[in-house]
Every structure is written in C-alpha cells, then in structure tokens.
C-alpha cells in the first residue's frame, strides 16, 4: 500500500476518534455542570476542557471567560479553533476523500453523509436547548463509521492502519479525560469525594457505567474508576485494551524498519498488563498518565516514521 494512503487512513481514523472523544468529554462536562455547584467551580470544569487540549492561546484570543456557552461554542464549531469537533470531522472527511478508492463505498458514504449532516447542525439552537443531542449524534456517527468499517472492509493492511489510528488516539484521549476529571474530583488524592453523580457522569462519558457495575458490583470509588479506565483488559476504551490492539496491528503491518516501534509498544503494553492500580495511585496517577500520553505520542511518531512518511518528505 502507498505510504501516503496509509497516512491518510491513519489520520482519518484519528480525527474521527478525536471528534467522538471530544463529544464525550464535552458531554460529561455538561452533565457535571448541572449538578449544583458554585459558578467558579463550574467554570473551572470548563477551563479544564481548554487546558486539556492545550488551547488556552486560541481560546483567550477570542473569549475572556471560560463559561459553558463560550467553551461549547469554541469546541463544537468555532472556525478559529482547529481542534473543534467540526474541524476534526472535516479533517476526517478530507483524509477519507483522499483515499476514497481504498476504503469501501459504505465507509465513504457514511463519512461523507456525516459531513453533509454536520453542516445542517445549528450551534445557536444547541446552546438554547442543550448540546446533548449533538454529542449523541457525533457518537452515533462515529459508531456508524466503525460499523461500516468492520462490516465491509477487507481486514488487510489498510484496515490495520485504520485500527492503529483509532486505538492510539483513543488511548491518548481516555488518558486525558481521566487525568483532568480525576484531579477535579480528587484534588487531594484522597478517597474522600465520591460523588455518585460526578463519577457516574465520567463513567457514562466512556460508556463504562454498566461495565463498572458488572465488574465491581459495589459503589463507585475513584480508584476503581481509574482501574477500569486504565487496566481493564476488555473494556474497549481502556488504556490496556487500546495498547493490546495496537501491538497486534503493528505486528500485522511490520516492515524492515518498524522493529523499534514494535518493541516500545510491546513494552508499554506489558507494563500495563502487569501493573496494579494501588501502585499507580501510590506513585501518582497524574504522573503515570502524563508518562503514558508521552509514550503514546512517541508511538504515533514511530508509526509515522516507519510507514507513513516518504523519505523525501522527511528530509
């Protein structure tokens, strides 16, 4: 397969996954903002969304206050924000457009229809009646794209690059989400604040509420939530799950120069596979997650250098 084609596939799936996770993050923030709290506390939650995506400069160039309306508008559809949901879906569609001959007609049509429908969404109405319907729509469209991929695409090399993009992006996004929410909810690192609604919202944001119930059958505690999102072997949005899939896909596309990237991915997977949540929390969840995100970024760069970048483009 052409390196450029693989590059487009990788980024197509990363952008779609990013749009979905952004919708999830904004949705959980929105849900949490409806729980009674001070205005300051509420705005702090919205501020975290901006910080999490390192968008302070772009945001404050345009808005002064990190309130719900500003952050939602900025993150959903602001044309000045290259990381908005709209921008991610547009980039996903553009990457798909560049390889529409490689993906199946069903995949392309689902992506293209998503873009066409997005242009009919009205941000003002969303602000008035609440953005949850929109977030549900983004999640649904992402699911449709995954479904079309799974249901129609040959599981060849192209499929593995799509998978790699999805899993590495998701691993990063789950880590980010956990990082920001955990510290808002457990500022001191103690097990004191176990607000059912707040934790419930976080779990629902990663579609893990029912999973949590099935897995633990007890009340919600921060450490168990952290355990679920990082170390659960079969929860599709956990770090361990994503890394295991990435290691598999990497093995299937391996070439002469990808050995080091495979080694690093395998090592990160093994560390997760044999980690204990108690140890992670003892040495600091934030440090653990920061390190994880750095290493995922390193893997993305590895994939890019080993497979996607053409020698001259890299020079």
């Amino acid at each position: 397969m052409l390196s450029r084609t693989a590059d487009h596939l990788f980024w197509m799936s990363r952008y779609i996954e990013r749009a979905e996770n952004l919708a999830r993050l904004l949705d959980v923030t929105w849900q949490m903002s409806m729980v009674p709290q001070s205005l300051d506390a509420a705005n702090q939650n919205w501020q975290a969304v901006i910080n999490l995506n390192s968008l302070e400069d772009a945001f404050f160039a345009k808005y002064s206050e990190t309130n719900a309306a500003n952050v939602l508008r900025f993150m959903i559809s602001d044309v000045d924000n290259p990381a908005s949901i709209t921008a991610c879906l547009r980039m996903g569609r553009e990457n798909a457009h560049a390889v529409r001959g490689t993906i199946t007609a069903e995949m392309w049509e689902t992506l293209n229809a998503t873009w066409i429908e997005l242009n009919t969404q009205n941000t003002d109405a969303m602000m008035t009646y609440g953005p949850s319907d929109f977030f549900d729509w983004v999640k649904l469209r992402s699911s449709l794209i995954h479904g079309a991929t799974l249901g129609t695409m040959l599981q060849d090399e192209a499929y593995q690059f799509i998978r790699l993009g999805t899993l590495l992006e998701r691993a990063d996004n789950t880590a980010r989400l956990l990082d920001v929410k955990y510290h808002v909810l457990v500022p001191t690192g103690e097990e004191a604040t176990t607000d059912f609604y707040q934790w419930g919202a976080l779990l629902r944001a990663v579609s893990a509420f029912e999973v949590y119930r099935k897995t633990f059958r007890t009340g919600i505690t921060p450490s168990r939530v952290a355990a679920l999102l990082t170390l659960h072997p079969s929860m599709p949005r956990s770090l361990l799950f994503c890394l295991r899939g990435a290691v598999r896909s990497l093995a299937l596309v391996a070439n002469d120069q990808s050995g080091e990237t495979q080694r690093r991915a395998g090592r990160l997977y093994s560390e997760l596979r044999y980690a204990r949540i108690e140890d992670i929390l003892a040495s600091g969840l934030h440090e653990f997650l920061s390190d994880f995100m750095d290493r995922v970024e390193d893997l993305c760069n590895g994939v890019s250098n080993d497979f996607l970048v053409t020698p001259q483009a890299a020079a």
């Binding site: 397969m1 052409l2 390196s3 450029r4 596309v253 070439n255 996607l308 053409t310 001259q312």
Partner: peptide, 16 residues
C-alpha cells in the same frame, strides 16, 4: 509525490 525515478525506472513508495 508517491512516485520517484531511480535508474530510469519509476517506483512508488509503499508501506513495505
């Protein structure tokens, strides 16, 4: 940009 010429032969850059 996917193609290049080496020894009067045209090649394409692939993942393999």
């Amino acid at each position: 940009r996917d193609l290049f010429v080496r020894d009067d032969t045209v090649w394409m850059r692939t993942t393999r």
